[in-house]
Amino acid sequence: MKSLKAILAALLDSLRDLLPIILVIGFFQLAVLRQPIPNFGEIAVGFLFVIVGLTLFVQGLNMGLFPIGEAMAYSFASKGNLVWLLCFAFALGFGTTVAEPALIAVAGEAAVVAAQGGMIEHNEPALAAYAFGLRLTVAVSVGIAIVIGVFRIVMGWPIQNLILLGYGGVVVMTIFAPHEIIGIAYDSGGVTTSTITVPLVTALGVGLASSIKGRNPMVDGFGLIAFASLTPMVFVMGYGMLV
């Protein structure tokens, strides 16, 4: 009985999270565009799926993703081997990004833009090669980002100095990068962090910061995602300048 109540409460939480979307869509469709909602039944089932999905996801976060991320952080910290920790950080960043569907989509579009801008030839192999190169570039840059972020936590450097350096890099690169690549480069920073990577990486950072003496999990534990959104911009603009 108690667990049933907990499930209901969790479902209600998810419903509350989705309520704004339902209101926005409903208002614009009915009041602004003045059109009926098409396929009402299908849409209702879809929203039910979304609510159930979000509820299961949050349960799974607390049972699976957070504990494993923290457990790995503690084991690496107690093993005390920095090189392996950094290898793990790189593998996690690279491995989760290279197969990311959103990135594959953006890379494909970027290749078309590059071809239109005359940077590469407009044929199938050239497009595919450019898109693949871009994907690898972004994946390597995310790997490096997690390595830098983990290293920062271990050393206890303040995050703002590194971020300052990174944004400085972005601004300088923007001046020199080909015009066509700039929008893609800025967007690629946003698409790299998937729904499963984020909780894992966050738990890893917070776990490291709480198991290393002298680190504060709030001040030092966060920030891995920030690097993962920053370095792709720099690297993609660099890729645009080289290719």
Partner: peptide, 12 residues
């Protein structure tokens, strides 16, 4: 937990 995350994301 992983199974729940997978199912949840699938539904979502």
């Amino acid at each position: 937990g992983f199974v729940l995350v997978l199912l949840g994301l699938g539904f979502f």
